[in-house]
Design a protein around this nucleic acid. Structure first.
Length: 802
DNA sequence: GATTTTACGTA
DNA sequence: CGTACGTAAAATCT
């Protein structure tokens, strides 16, 4: 059944979707089903009156199974069948007659029909010209059906619709008269640097390009405004363009400028660390990072420069030009960074909480860059011994396993494993746990499934497979490439998202369009500057840590916050018995606290079961511990039952008992829900704000419950790390950051001194509803990261002489 | 050769 | 209804 567009002949906006759905087919109208409802809501919110728009679809009929592939000859969806080609001709005629000022293309099919391009993720948000009817403006964005599947896209679609509306009042394209200088002599360039230093007012944007992963800087771009940028090439391929003398002049001139000028960058820690590590050029005043600014203002939105440019400016897409004209591309990066800066700066300044968070994150750039460049010492001897040991164990385990099952199986292959388990051994098929019941059931051979089967069948094969898999996994952490200095390096991502998890040759093409929530925690990924080691250093298993060491004469000193999130939760929900316990045990030796029974899980069990503290058995304590964790993570009875090996009914009973002794938790949780209804913004104990954009469901709530404790601890640790760096950075070396722990390298004879320094920087008074409290810090020491010994700070205070 | 899927390490 | 992150190896696509 042919479903035509609807809307007035005077419409200035033409909204074009993909194909009708079931409801559209029933009513013979486009966008009248669930997608249409969502579209209407979004249009209303940005001020577009749908009844003044033309609304239609590229395909005029519903494809069988709602599968758009039906209308194409090929799987890549580039060759339309005759019927679709005819509809596109109809569409062309309709656009010619209507002459709208703006076409909003919803989804990949509409994008393709109107512009001939595929890839809505990269194209969305950028004004472009239709190739179907030249001269007509098109603004592509995601289809509402995609938003229904992934609610995080709603924010982007709203901004795109707003942009479409703003540009729909006439048919002209916004002017782009920006100047990109890409061919300038060295002499002229040096003069330009002088001009920037002495005459140009205000900050500049900076962006560098490198030849390859771990390669040298070949292009340096500087933007002096949103209108002019200069790009300069220093290498030809991998060869220098200039004589050593001339090149030195270039770097000195650049260094001279960057010592004084305030610098704006996108993900500037990379440029800053590269310039310092490769060319000893130091950016002294890194004053605005657009990546950090975006993270502060929209913590759940993408924050690549491509994305930010699409929502902050009307300029066209340029991220697809990097290969054909790298210098022009580089200059445009600088221009767009400037535009994004001008949009985001007022947003930061108008909100004092944002201003604090922004400065707080900016201050982490220098210590994080230093940590990336320094790296971790690895003892190659321990490494090779450990690798030998594990390889031998793997060999033995393989032989045993093959002996039992009578053939060779690669346990790293889910396919082979599922064949073995569910076909050869005929075990009951295990399915992956689903997030919603709408997801399809997936067969799995993961650890959870194997453990379940192992408990049910008592077959020794399953445990053998499990331990073999574990050994292989461990080997990936051990068998890594070291730097010439026997080190590994990592890149710490302050905004919690990687900008670099691609080959360097494509790093600048990449669109990072996943949403990352990162509640004030750093993430850790491979360094692009020094690509040695397994990259992420925040997920090293204990057994792999033994090869990471302190250099001769030094020890690793670890300081971590004790029960940090539990303390914060206790104060937030005003759990007096826990608060009393934390207060009493503050600064106390661990042995003494244990003697007095000052233990969260013991207290929990004692209250739950009405047993005196000193009579709480190990088993009861375990139950107390599991219940507290289950509640902290808002897990359900199924999980509790699983973890304690009891029935669901018993687990429900235990959960009730827990809530009886701690009724405040549920009250607080419902307060959070109520709060989200009115504002969707939560604030942690430092004032960091987080806008929750997710769909209104349990996932949103769970995420929100964990926000305040998790982000408060993250902010507290990072603020302490910065204090430590600024005050004692020349006396000790900050080695590792691990969410609620900091590791430093300390001279062996200065351990006591450094423990006191770390305590000083880390003990942080927090305020919750008018009550001040401090989270205690715990220390351990080791020559190797895998063998840390607990120490009591009191033992280092008595011999202090400062 | 490039991209997607599956699995798993840490806090 | 555990969450967040990043990476390795296998499987699959082109």
């Amino acid at each position: 059944m042919y479903i035509s567009s609807v809307g007035p002949a005077t419409a200035q906006i033409f909204i074009i979707g993909e194909a009708p759905g079931a409801e559209e087919e029933r009513q013979l109208k486009p966008f009248c089903g669930p997608s249409g409802d969502l579209l209407n809501n979004m249009l209303r919110e940005v001020g577009i009156n749908r009844h003044l728009c033309r609304v239609g679809n590229v395909c005029k009929e519903r494809p069988p199974g709602n599968d758009i592939r039906y209308f194409f000859e090929d799987r890549r969806l580039l060759q339309p069948k005759k019927i679709l080609a005819d509809w596109i001709t109809d569409l062309k005629r309709e656009i010619r007659e209507l002459q709208p000022n703006m076409i909003i293309a919803l989804g990949d099919t509409a994008l393709w029909a109107l512009t001939g391009e595929r890839g809505i993720t990269a194209a969305r948000g950028y004004l472009t010209q239709s190739t179907l009817v030249p001269g007509i403006k098109v603004l592509p964005t995601y289809h509402p059906a995609a938003v229904l599947r992934d609610w995080g896209l709603r924010f982007q679609v709203m901004l795109d619709l707003k942009k479409a509306y703003d540009n729909s009042h006439d048919s002209t394209f916004p002017k782009d008269n920006r100047i990109c200088v890409t061919s300038i002599s060295l002499t002229e360039y040096l003069k330009y640097l002088e001009y920037l230093k002495h005459e140009h007012k205000g900050p500049v944007t900076l962006d560098i390009e490198t030849t390859r992963l771990g390669g040298n800087i070949d292009i340096v771009g500087i933007g002096e405004s949103t209108q002019k940028a200069v790009s300069f090439r220093i290498l030809n391929g991998r060869e220098p363009r200039f004589s050593p003398d001339a090149e030195i002049k270039f770097w000195l001139g650049l260094a001279d400028l960057l010592e004084t000028k305030p610098v704006i960058m996108q993900n500037g820690k990379f440029d800053m660390a590269s310039l310092w590590y490769k060319n000893r050029v130091l950016i002294k005043n890194f004053y605005f990072d657009t990546l950090i600014a975006a993270h502060v203002v929209w913590p759940e939105a993408p924050r690549s420069l491509g994305f930010l440019t699409s929502i902050c400016t009307n300029y066209p897409r340029w991220k697809n030009t990097s290969k054909e004209n790298p210098m022009l591309y580089n200059a445009q990066d600088c221009l767009n960074t400037f535009s994004v800066y001008e949009t985001l700066r007022p947003e930061i300044e108008r909100n004092e909480h944002h201003a604090w968070t922004f400065q707080h994150e900016m201050s982490q750039n220098y210590p994080a860059a230093m940590m990336e460049i320094y790296g971790l010492h690895v003892d190659p001897l321990t490494q090779s011994q450990k690798i030998q040991e594990i390889k031998l164990k793997i060999q033995q385990a393989e032989q045993e396993l093959n002996g039992i099952i009578g053939k060779k199986v690669n346990v790293k292959s889910p396919k082979q494993l599922s064949n073995l388990l569910y076909v050869d051994l005929n075990l009951p098929i295990q399915y992956k746990r689903r997030k919603t019941r709408f997801e399809p059931k997936r067969v799995t051979t993961d650890a959870e499934a194997l453990n379940k089967l192992s408990r049910a069948t008592k077959s020794p094969v399953l445990q053998k497979i499990l331990s073999l898999k574990k050994l292989y996994k461990l080997l990936t952490f051990l068998d890594i490439e070291l730097s010439p200095e026997n080190k590994v390096h990592t890149c710490y991502n302050i905004t919690g998202a990687t900008m670099s998890n691609v080959k360097a040759s494509e790093a600048f093409v990449r669109e990072v369009d996943d949403s990352y929530k990162s509640f004030a925690r750093w993430s850790s990924s491979s360094s692009i500057i020094l690509p040695y080691g397994s990259g992420n250093l925040q997920n090293q298993p204990k057994e792999a840590r033994v090869m990471m060491t302190a250099p001769p004469g030094y020890v690793i000193l670890q300081a971590d916050y004790m029960q940090a999130e539990a303390v914060v939760v206790a104060y937030i929900i005003n759990d007096q018995s826990l608060i009393r316990m934390f207060k009493e045990s503050f600064g106390m030796r661990k042995s003494e606290a244990a003697e007095r029974g000052l233990d969260v899980h013991k207290i929990t069990a004692s209250q739950m079961f009405g047993v005196p503290l000193n009579e709480v058995s190990g088993d009861l304590r375990t139950i107390g511990k599991r219940l507290r964790h289950a509640n902290n993570y808002s897990a359900g009875p199924g999980v509790v039952a699983n973890s304690l090996g009891i029935s669901i009914t018993e687990a429900k009973k235990l959960l009730d008992m827990y809530h009886n002794i701690c009724p405040q938790l549920r009250i607080w949780q419902s307060n959070i829900q109520r709060h989200l209804q009115t504002s969707r913004v939560l604030e942690n104990l430092f004032g960091r704000q987080h806008l929750f954009m997710g769909r209104w469901d349990d996932n949103l709530f769970r995420s929100a419950y964990s926000y305040i404790p998790q982000s408060t601890v993250g902010d507290m640790l990072n603020a302490a790390l910065v204090r430590l760096y600024n005050k004692y950075g020349s006396d000790l070396h900050i080695y590792i950051q691990l969410h609620d722990a900091v590791y430093v390298l300390s001279k062996e004879e200065e351990v006591g001194l450094n423990i006191r320094r770390m305590r000083e920087c880390m003990l942080t008074p927090l305020t919750c509803r008018g009550t001040e409290f401090t989270i205690d810090v715990d220390f351990s020491i080791g020559k190797s990261w895998g063998k840390m010994q607990d120490v009591e700070y009191q033992d280092y205070i008595t011999d202090a002489e400062d």
